[in-house]
């Protein structure tokens, strides 16, 4: 397929160390508008650190990251402005406990985008409906289940109308029965054409909805390609090892064994 869509985010030879520990050893990455990319790999591979570099919550030691043409690793980069257009969803939700659900959603549009409370509330209500939680607008985060809190967190990020959404192991802290409701929202976003980078352990989600899967290990990109390739016939031994370790059981493999 001719890829005429613009590159939204790209990373060139990004390196990062924490003290003496090299966490990222030269990552190259690219994502185009409307693409959904899932990053998989064992813990300690640097996946989350890399994701957090994409919105500069972490500062790379070396290399460049470009967002819509702007080098966000450069010295004078205006990070708050950049971050307005990148949405992030955290593993532990990080909702503001001292505000209601609605309060959480209007915080960004009001204090960052300068909207009036009324405008912001309209958007907030729409986003809440989108994730199926309009009934909970006046609740406090502590009154919600984990899955509900994460959906609110997604709505909060969406309320800023970002160009790209970053998901940092969005379902890893959830009880199994709550994972589905969050993945449901992520699936809808993907189908609506949102540009998404998701660090995830949910392989079935990646297989079905990702345009591309990136396998990371020990600070490097081991392999990347379309899901069919990665999950069914990975070229790298390390990838196959990893998928084996997590007991990945692709449907066709199961069928083949029957």
């Amino acid at each position: 397929m001719a890829d005429a869509r613009p590159t939204i985010l790209s990373a060139e030879r990004v390196t990062k160390s924490f003290g003496s520990v090299e966490v990222l050893r030269g990552i190259d990455f690219e994502i185009s508008a409307g693409e959904v990319v899932c990053i998989i790999g064992p813990s300690g591979s640097g996946k989350s650190t890399f994701l957090r570099c994409l919105n500069r919550l972490e500062a790379p030691d070396g290399g460049r990251i470009l967002f819509e043409g702007t080098d966000i690793t450069a010295a004078g980069a205006r990070l708050p402005e950049v971050r307005r257009r990148i949405g992030m969803v955290f593993q532990h939700f990080n909702l503001f406990p001292h505000k209601t659900v609605l309060g959480n959603l209007i915080e960004g549009p009001c204090s960052v985008l300068g909207m009036s409370k009324r405008e912001a509330t309209e958007i907030a209500v729409a986003m809440l409906a989108k994730v199926g939680l309009d009934a909970k607008a006046d609740a406090k985060p502590s009154q919600l289940s984990g899955g509900q809190q994460q959906r609110v967190a997604i709505a909060r990020a969406l309320a800023m109308s970002p160009d790209v959404m970053l998901f940092d192991e969005a379902t890893s802290a959830l009880d199994p029965e709550l994972v589905g409701e969050v993945l449901g929202v992520m699936k809808e976003l993907a189908q609506e054409g949102m540009t998404m980078v998701a660090v995830t352990h949910e392989m079935h989600f990646a297989e079905r909805f990702a345009d591309r899967v990136v396998m990371m290990d020990e600070g490097r990109v081991v392999e990347e390609g379309p899901p069919e390739e990665i999950f069914r016939s990975a070229r790298s031994e390390r990838t196959r090892q990893f998928l084996d370790q997590i007991d990945w059981d692709h449907d066709s493999e199961r069928e083949a064994r029957r």
Binding site: V82, R83, F90, G108, V112
Partner: peptide, 26 residues
Amino acid sequence: PRGQQAAALSLGMSPAQAFRRVVLPQ
């Protein structure tokens, strides 16, 4: 929790805004 500041920054707040509106009240 540190995640609170991260969340505030991720919405595009400046560090000063994040402090004033999210960290300090808590």
